[in-house]
Design a protein around this nucleic acid. Structure first.
Lengths: 143, 143
DNA sequence: GCGTTCTTGCGTCCAGTTCGTATTTATGAC
DNA sequence: GTCATAAATACGAACTGGACGCAAGAACGC
């Protein structure tokens, strides 16, 4: 608990350094991001935040997530259809998402390195495997 | 023109075979799909169709695209943010989409084969590289 | 032709997200 | 501590992309 509080305050310092302010809703949101698992949608985060501070509005969550993303603290990813999910930038990875059951597999960035290299070589294109999921069928649904 | 008319009629035959009907709006939509370039959004297609038949409703476009997809004539792909794009199933390929400028590169399915193989090997996951784009930065925007 | 069934147009509704605005709040200067 | 000021907030409304229900219209088999 104390550890995640430390990390929260570190990010708030970062916010202040860039002209932002350390507000209650940001503190709670950050706590949730550090304590809860990854792949949280804005709505899910809002729900958790609102258990502590019911007045925090969903649009505040969105704006704070935007701000945190601009600071490089969180990133969002689109895992197929449906809402975007947010997680800490320090925990990035690629995603394999099943089109049938919606299950997601996390794959290390290294898993995409061959494709990334090929894209750079053949198209001078720098792939970011984190922002969008790679879709397909999982072991169960493909069988 | 005559050639694409032939192709349109062939699809309409397919529709009839599966219990569907050959309607004016479907004829025009198919004409657009064959004549216009790929990567058309439903809205763009609606605009083109409506130049010929202004009464065709956007929801009709959606429904017909769904139906054509069920028949395997067209497929849709999500190229990053924004609306889905539709193109002929015979012209499938993967997409590399630039997050900065929005430009899209088409890559043959073979380009993804190593990743596809690795996913099958390591995760028993069957990748479909066509449905969602791979995001990143194009040569210009990465430079 | 004629009835059946499919399709269409229209309006409405939905999720996910963004935006405008008046009000509140954190922060630095005193 | 107090105060001015700029930043953030709550709230609601708007917006985009798309799905849906329904009554009216159009294709098709006979």
């Amino acid at each position: 608990m104390t550890e995640s509080t430390d990390r929260v305050e570190k990010v708030l310092d970062l916010l202040r350094e860039s002209g932002g302010r350390a507000t209650t809703s940001r503190r709670i949101l950050l706590r949730c991001l550090f304590d809860e698992g990854p792949h949280r949608t804005a709505e899910e985060l809002a729900e958790v935040v609102q258990r502590v501070a019911p007045d925090v509005h969903l649009s505040t969550i969105y704006r704070n997530l935007d701000e945190l993303e601009r600071l490089g603290v969180v990133v969002h990813a689109h895992l197929g259809h449906g809402p975007a999910t947010y997680h800490l930038a320090s925990e990035t990875h690629g995603h394999l998402v099943c089109e049938v059951c919606g299950g997601t597999l996390e794959a290390p960035e290294a898993f995409f390195s061959e494709l990334t290299d090929a894209a750079a070589r053949e198209y001078h294109f720098v792939i970011d495997p984190r922002h969008f999921a790679v879709l397909g069928r999982c072991a169960v649904c493909a069988g």
